[in-house]
Every structure is written in structure tokens, then in C-alpha cells.
């Protein structure tokens, strides 16, 4: 798979190439989200949340490492988890655009986390039945972690949504801002469809109603209003990102870029 923009030639990809892209998407979403959470460490609203957010970050980075290693093997060009994480540029990253959005305040971080946790819950649970046993094994581990993540993020969503007038206002605003990134979660492209036809990945269209119902249930408890869905131009999973990813990667990749070839 050559490093080019926006998946041209997806129909011409071999099955391995398509699978590699699919796995990279999962990897990059976990990696970018894990990196964002790591920014909070030492700055959270309470010491206990420093630990809680660090715990989520560790889980996500762990998932990323497993997915990246597998993607590197599928690619067959000798790239390991670090080569993929530290030496690809932003257009080659395939994370959901939602994951790269900045932390904002704690409420903003919680909304972003909750939306992705609910998505990962569906996707990982479905991947446990993938015909790809490696993917199924990673998903089995990841789904257990995600259940805890969802408990954490939805718990906070409700406390903040149904907390004080200030907290309610903040999370409603965060929700209104981040909602525009949600259509990407369940809009399949050719890669998703190929993987789904081959029994390797779930059909996103089938997962969406469950995600939506779970979202509605939490919003009700949080006394929040579900925003109206709008069309979106961001196709993070196709390498078309927002401006934020470049800065995130600049920071993350700095040492490897400055000292090429060094072992750490």
C-alpha cells in the first residue's frame, strides 16, 4: 500500500491491502485518542481523574500497539509499530476525525470519549466474531477495556449533563460542536464493505441503530439534547483530516524525526 492521499485505487487493492487499511484505521483511532488523553495527565480536575484518564490512555495505546503490529505484518514492508506511529505523515493516518479533536475542557474530552467509546463497543464486540482470528483476539481484549471506558465516560456525561447549570451548558456546547464528526462513524466506504462481505468486519449500517439507542439513553439521563446531524467533509479514515492532526503528530513524532535512525 503506497502512502498516498484519500485511498485512491481502493477497488484495486488486494485483500491484504484492504485488510491492512482497515486495521490501520482501528489502530490510528486508538493511538490518536490515547495521545489526546495523555495530554491531561497532571492537569485533571481531581487526582483521581488523573489516574482514570491515564488508565484509559494506557488501554488505548495498548490497543494501538497490537493493531499497528498486525497492520505492519499485513503490509509486509518491515514496518513495526513505531515506524508506523512515528514516521507516517498526517495524510497517511486513518483515524476518525473525531479522535483528533482537541481536548478542550473536561466536558469536551468526556463527550469526545463517550461518542468513541460507544462506537468502539459496537465495533469491537462485532469483531470478536471476525473470520480473522488475530483481529478477533485483539478485539476480545479491547472490548473488555472499552466496557470500562464506556462506564467511565457515560458516568461523567450524566454527572456533568445533570449536574449544575454551568456543567450542563458546557457539555451541551461540547456535544453541539463534536456531533458533526459522528456521521463518519457509521458511513461505510469500499474498504468497510469489502471487509464486511468477507466476514472480517461488521456492517456499519447494522451497528448504527444500537449505537444510536445507547447514545439516546445516556443523553436522556444526562438531560442533554441530541444535536441535528449535518453533512460532513472530514474523512479521517480516508486520510482527510482537520488541522489538528498535524500539530498532534508534530509533537508526538518530534524525537524520531530529529534523530533519524536512533534507537530509544
Amino acid at each position: 500500500m503506497s502512502a498516498t492521499l484519500a485511498m485512491p485505487g481502493a477497488p484495486d487493492m488486494t485483500p491484504e491491502e484492504a485488510r491492512c487499511v482497515y486495521v490501520l484505521r482501528l489502530a490510528d483511532t486508538s493511538l490518536v485518542l490515547g495521545q489526546r488523553l495523555a495530554e491531561w495527565i497532571g492537569h485533571a480536575p481531581a487526582l483521581e481523574e488523573d489516574l482514570g484518564l491515564a488508565n484509559l490512555s494506557l488501554d488505548l495505546i495498548g490497543q494501538a500497539r497490537l493493531f499497528l503490529t498486525y497492520a505492519g505484518e499485513l503490509e509486509g514492508r518491515g514496518r513495526d509499530e513505531d515506524a508506523l506511529a512515528f514516521l507516517r505523515d498526517a495524510p497517511e493516518f486513518l483515524n476518525l476525525a473525531l479522535a483528533e479533536q482537541p481536548n478542550g475542557d473536561f466536558g469536551h474530552t468526556i463527550v469526545r470519549q463517550w461518542l468513541i467509546d460507544a462506537w468502539q463497543l459496537e465495533v469491537y464486540a462485532a469483531l470478536e466474531h471476525s473470520a480473522d482470528t488475530r483481529l478477533a483476539a485483539i478485539a476480545a481484549k479491547a472490548v473488555r477495556e472499552t466496557r470500562y471506558h464506556y462506564r467511565f465516560s457515560s458516568g461523567w456525561l450524566v454527572r456533568l449533563g445533570d449536574g449544575t447549570p454551568e456543567s450542563h451548558g458546557r457539555v451541551q456546547r461540547a456535544l453541539d460542536e463534536l456531533w458533526r464528526f459522528t456521521p463518519e462513524l457509521f458511513t461505510p466506504d469500499e474498504i468497510d464493505e469489502r471487509m464486511s462481505r468477507a466476514g472480517l468486519a461488521p456492517s456499519l449500517a447494522e451497528l448504527e441503530p444500537r449505537w444510536s439507542a445507547r447514545i439516546d439513553e445516556a443523553l436522556r439521563a444526562a438531560t442533554l439534547v441530541r444535536p441535528v446531524t449535518q453533512p460532513y467533509p472530514w474523512h479521517g479514515k480516508r486520510g482527510i483530516h482537520t488541522e489538528h492532526l498535524g500539530h498532534l503528530l508534530g509533537e508526538m513524532q518530534h524525537l524520531q524525526r530529529t534523530y533519524p535512525g536512533a534507537r530509544w
Binding site: A44, P45, A46, E49, F106, L160, G163, E166, S167
Partner: peptide, 17 residues
């Protein structure tokens, strides 16, 4: 800064509880 910025969060959690 972290403590101040987090005040509304801690208060919300107590209010909810």
C-alpha cells in the same frame, strides 16, 4: 490552574450525587 479549571467538574459531580 488544574484545580481551578476543574472546580466546575467537582461541583457538578457533587450536585448530581
Amino acid at each position: 490552574r488544574a484545580h481551578e479549571a476543574g472546580r466546575w467538574v467537582r461541583e457538578a459531580a457533587l450536585a448530581h450525587a
